[in-house]
Nucleic acid binder design. Structure first.
Lengths: 338, 338
DNA sequence: TTGACATATGTCAACGTTGACATCCGCTGT
DNA sequence: ACAGCGGATGTCAACGTTGACATATGTCAA
């Protein structure tokens, strides 16, 4: 009931009959300590349930907090969840913990989270930037040597490390796959806002594929869907065109989900579809969904590795890491135009 | 390049020509400060890019870290991701940040994460306990007044707050739904290990429904699948029985995914199916999947609210909160036995 | 004029830990 | 017998901040 004070190093020391410094030595395995003293200290530590105060320690050694700050747009999105998992497992063995916050894609929340993390003196910052916004405000931190890595999307106005999917090449490959199966009119359903980095890159990949095949680009085939519902409606609109597409490329997981729903609602199992980003039930859909799979855990791991090497003093110039995607043909992408 | 030291309060004070204490007063809006002094301090704070050191502050005020520790089994699982999101958004406005770690369902990792959090002097602990393990080791913390809330599954050997889905009632309702549609032989596919709390509760709910309908329990209809693949195989085994079930109840999201795959592989669109936990593409499956939906964000929010009230000094006795589930009929659960 | 009071600021110590340096002891080699 | 040395421990201050208390100046009522 009465909240008992947690024991400090000094409490332990008094109990054993030595100084705090000796206890410190035992716990940090530093300097010579008589085996018998060590044993007695350990005994008391156990008995009192002593736990070192990391806050005090970090402060004294002038070190930064043994934590890295992670800002993601949405924890519920399994893509970012998996990214976060990849990061966490990669840094854990180095004794680092992960502090997360979600920005809900707003630059205000992103900034306030970053400010909180900086006030905590995190050892590094990992940020999935929100769609809009400028990262010049992080310049001072960068110059002060704080490792900062951007994930999934690059920073704006700041030269910093960044780890992204090979969006353009993946989208090109997915679209080319449809072209290889005979399609000449291919719809594109992407994110809103169209300024979002991933959307722009994937759109470029789509156009690259068309250009390489010598196919004309028809901007009437480009639709936007920022949610599954919107994407479903977009798919239906495309199919209702006078000269409708025979295949669709859905440029993110919500768009893919929506496209599947839209095609199902329209009863059109003959329309080919390739989704960007894999879905758990992709293989049991009718037809099974062909996708360009990203590697979210790989993105997280790569970013974590980069952070660790920067923490180890790697001062080489800023890098941009591309994490490859993989085309998984399952059926929907191999349908031929009727 | 050379990592510039971050300015401290003293640096700001020197620059302004006052004492650190005055700067402190300005920043904490405490005590009287001349408007002009305040302005000069703010100016220098901005110019130097000063940010207060939370570590030092927390230590001085003897407060705990303004963070809450969260242990979940797996960040990539959208169920837990959404739970975490619910927590984070609920505590953010109180100025608390969330520190997460995943236990991968092992009690060793869980304990080591908890130890890290305790060493950081977090303000509260939120734990999804791993399947096995005993939480008596947290007794001292509980008695010291640290708010501890268990999520999704209750603690073992420790009286503590806990927030869980209404597993038993939800499973009963789902099973009763199948019975109401004429089924008398209903297969159950659940987690491994069978000792897992959620698995036990949902199994009880299944048996409750059978008992209420006066139907016999046949343990030959009970199968285990700890992954989607295993669940798919389990579904196929059940259908191959001499007297096979006409309906299946899949007691978690992996089991549900697996059951869908298993039925699809066996080409059996006539077998009724109810899943526990909703799936993103449930409505576009053939037939659309009927589910007992949980409310992960609600679980997170409820747990967060509990933590906040404990932090505010609520010393009433430990509670067990049941977050209701919701049956969503979509088709697969309304199929009648042939 | 005095002192009572509010305003504006300063001084000092402490939070729990550890780095730098000092001390004390017993042993060895000469 | 004594310097020299390594082992075991202690002392002290400092990390950046704030609580408790002190000081200095000005204002106003008695």
């Amino acid at each position: 009931m009465a909240s008992a004070r947690r024991p400090t190093m000094t409490d332990v020391a008094r109990e054993v009959g030595v100084t705090a410094k000796t206890v410190s030595r035992v716990l940090n395995e530093e300097g010579p300590v008589a085996p018998e003293t060590r044993a007695r200290v350990m005994e008391v530590v156990r008995r009192l349930g002593y736990q070192p105060n990391l806050m005090a320690r970090n402060m004294r050694v002038g070190a930064r907090d043994a934590a890295i700050g992670l800002v993601i747009p949405d924890m519920g999105n399994p893509f970012f969840g998996t990214v976060a998992g990849g990061i966490e497992s990669a840094v854990r063995e180095r004794g680092l913990t992960v502090i997360v916050g979600s920005s809900s894609e707003t630059k205000e929340l992103e900034r306030s989270l970053v400010a909180t993390f900086l006030a905590r003196r995190v050892s590094a910052l990992l940020v999935v930037p929100s769609a809009t916004g400028d990262h010049r405000y992080l310049r001072a931190e960068r110059e002060a040597g704080l490792p900062i890595v951007f994930l999934d999307r690059p920073a704006m106005g700041l030269a910093a490390d960044c780890v992204v999917s090979s969006n353009r090449e993946g989208a090109r490959e997915g679209t080319a796959h449809l072209i290889a199966h005979g399609h000449r009119r291919i719809g594109f359903i992407g994110d809103l806002p169209a300024t979002l980095y991933t959307r722009r890159e994937r759109f470029q990949g789509y156009r690259d594929a068309l250009a390489q095949a010598g196919l004309p680009f028809d901007k009437g085939l480009v639709e936007t869907g920022h949610s599954a519902e919107a994407a479903a409606a977009a798919a239906e609109r495309l199919l209702a065109l006078p000269d409708p597409p025979t295949a669709l490329f859905a440029a993110n997981n919500f768009a893919a989900t929506g496209a599947v729903v839209g095609l199902a609602k329209a009863g059109r199992k003959d329309v080919a579809l390739v989704g960007y980003d894999d879905l758990p039930l992709a293989e049991v859909l009718d037809p099974p969904l062909t996708v360009v799979a990203q590697d979210p855990a790989g993105i997280g791991a790569a970013a974590a590795a980069l952070v660790l090497s920067r923490l180890d003093g790697d001062r080489s110039r800023m890098t941009k890491t591309l994490v490859p995607t993989r085309l998984i043909p399952r059926g929907s992408g191999e349908l031929r135009p009727r």
